[in-house]
Design a protein around this nucleic acid. Sequence first.
DNA 1: CTTTTCTCCTGTATGC
DNA 2: TGCATACAGGAGAAAA
Length: 319
Amino acid sequence: MPELPEVETVRRGLAEHVVGRTVTRAAFFGARVTRRHPPGPEDLAAQLAGARVAAAERRGKYLWLVMEPGRGDQPDRAPAAFALIVHLGMSGQLLVEPPDAPVEAHLRAAFDLAGDAPGPGPGGGSGGGPGWVGTQLRFVDQRTFGGMALADLVPAPGRPGGVPQTITHIAPDPLESAYDQRAVVAAMKRRQSAVKRALLDQSLVSGIGNIYADEALWAAKVHGERPCAALSRPALARVLTAAREVMERALEAGGTSFDALYVNVNGASGYFDRSLHAYGQVGRPCARCGAPIRREAFMNRSSYSCPRCQPRPRLAGRV
DNA sequence: CTTTTCTCCTGTATGC
DNA sequence: TGCATACAGGAGAAAA
């Protein structure tokens, strides 16, 4: 499940293999992948055709490519850059492949790319590389919770290139300069909800999903059902710091696993198997105290925690 | 305004 | 073996 570290790994792959190239043709398959782009897939394809990928950006779990339109009718006046937003949902992958690679079962979009990418990627020079005639960027998404859309870029603090207008409700994530942990702690203090719900609220702090929420709460020794307001500011800060640290470590573990041909979210995190202390570890001993990790229902899914290190709040829920 | 619930989707695992 | 069911879960719309 792509959360911040996995999405950042994909962004880095895009920066290396796609930025600098021009989209010569775009195609979309199925209606759901463009459901967040109201004008529809034909409009999306038309606007991308001829545009150059100027940058690959990320905030939380959202990716976007900064696109510079091709100069059509007005060669003396450069049209404004815009964003191609990509959300991977739960099962989305971005793949960089030769155009004649076999079509994946859940291929949702394909972009033909022209030009060389800068840096030591494929096609980056005469030596090395597979020597493709062309390159395709493909979006494959089994469950199609992800999608693509266009948006204008609007100014945002700490983001020189701006952020897409349609995702300005997404808060800065813990790894960007605009992130202000003291402000997040203050906002959490005012929340009338459990701390895990707050961690998952992307308008408060972005990038954290179910996995890293459980890991952060385990590291901070806090049960996710504890009300935000019942936690001290230092305790809230410890939870947020733990979230940042666990995601930084996951990024280190996952950041090296894609090769030159492949920008793959599923392969991005070897972190899952080796370093999880709570998520999915039901019955296994807590790494701190040895008590078996428990699983509890939470919002139609699951939460994992240590029953000894993370005791449930005494008043779990009010009526 | 704030907070919670529902819904979208499909492959995998489990139970009878 | 075959069929039904639970589960994974991000995010936005709808409801409370």
